[in-house]
């Protein structure tokens, strides 16, 4: 089976000479057909540029990009079977919602009746069947988001690109949309490529996650792999809020003499174990995050599940964890 999207040693550089910035630096990746693929990273890590390379708004300085086996080297954005949901939605303000959704069909010369009917179908798909006659300015953020989705899907793309599509929504709506996007993707069987800086979003929605840092992919894997077995210090730090131990600290706590990740939820308070003092508490609702200064000379974050007894700041405690919870990784920050 050919991959939906395939990058071979792709680089994209902005500016030239000493001021040049390598936004995407020798990236190779393969996205399978029908996959929900997340590109996760902090701002400026190159994930959005990667997305724009797929859609064709940027061209690589080096390397090859293939979409379903076809080299995209000289294919402009309007001739790629790829559609994008933009971060700011980019709905056309002078058109009605229905005309917005039908735009992709209109420019391809589909007759008015057919495209209006298709637009209504798409609006029903995103649960906005009554909104065709409105202007984008009359919609809420969540509704605009759905219109942008319908507009991108009307062309029946083989790959749908989503650039931080939930970034502007409030938490409740964002969670609802996460579930909805996921089920939509399952139903339509389209390859979704999703850019986000929110690790929770990437972990909960994606089949596979690529973690970006400084223009490179530092790890690709299933959400569980990326979360439980981070490849580098950077991944451990960025995905979740792990305790990152230097080789010396790890050795002092009985771990390998390498950079090590220890997830806060893997640590328990017990009668036996490493002694320390509670320095701070952070109540999270579903649990409590306890900061402990160990006598061994380092700080550890501990996540206590809801219902567990919570110590007070200043209390002496002992911490224990399975040795297998200490995950060795590369030291790149």
């Amino acid at each position: 089976m050919t991959a939906a999207v395939d990058f071979t040693h792709v680089s994209r550089q902005f500016g030239s000479g000493a001021a040049a910035v390598r936004a995407v630096d020798d990236v190779s990746l393969t996205i399978a057909e029908g996959e929900f693929f997340a590109m996760l990273g902090p701002s400026g890590s190159g994930k959005t540029t990667c997305l724009r390379l797929i859609s064709g708004f940027e061209s690589p300085n080096a390397g090859t990009i293939r979409i379903f086996g076809q080299d995209m080297g000289s294919v402009p954005p309007n001739r790629r079977h790829v559609n994008t949901v933009f971060q700011d939605y980019a709905l056309f303000p002078h058109m009605t919602v229905r005309d917005n959704v039908a735009y992709g069909l209109m420019v391809r010369g589909v007759d008015r009746r057919t495209r209006m009917a298709r637009a209504e179908e798409m609006l029903a798909l995103v649960h906005l069947p009554e909104f065709g006659g409105r202007k984008p300015g009359q919609l809420s953020g969540g509704q605009r988001q759905r219109v942008a989705l319908a507009r991108a899907l009307v062309n029946e793309p083989r790959v749908l690109l989503l650039d931080e599509p939930l970034g502007a929504l409030d938490l409740k709506l964002r969670e609802a949309m996460q579930d909805e996007l996921k089920s939509l993707q399952k139903r339509l069987g389209i390859t979704f490529v999703f850019v986000t800086h929110d690790q929770g979003e990437a972990l909960s929605m994606a089949d596979r996650v690529a973690v970006f840092s400084r223009g490179k992919i530092v790890q690709t894997g299933s959400p569980a792999e990326v979360y439980e077995r981070p490849a580098t210090r950077f991944v451990a730090d960025f995905v979740g809020s792990s305790n990152v131990l230097s080789p010396e600290q790890s050795a002092r706590l009985g771990g390998p003499a390498r950079w090590t990740s220890l997830r806060p939820e893997a640590i328990r308070l017990a009668a036996e174990g490493a002694p320390g003092t509670v320095t701070a508490l952070r109540y999270l609702g579903a649990g409590t995050r306890v900061s402990v200064a160990l006598e061994a000379g380092l700080d550890l974050g501990v996540l206590l599940p809801a219902g567990a007894p919570v110590p007070a700041p200043g209390d002496a405690v002992r911490l224990t964890w399975e040795r297998s919870a200490m995950h060795a990784m590369e030291g790149e920050a």
Binding site: P77, L91, Y103, V107, R151, N155
Partner: peptide
């Protein structure tokens, strides 16, 4: 906004359209 023009191209419009 520049994304408005990109969205148009993304949806299949030629520059003239």
């Amino acid at each position: 906004p520049a994304t408005m023009l990109e969205a148009s191209g993304d949806l299949g419009a030629r520059p003239g359209q």
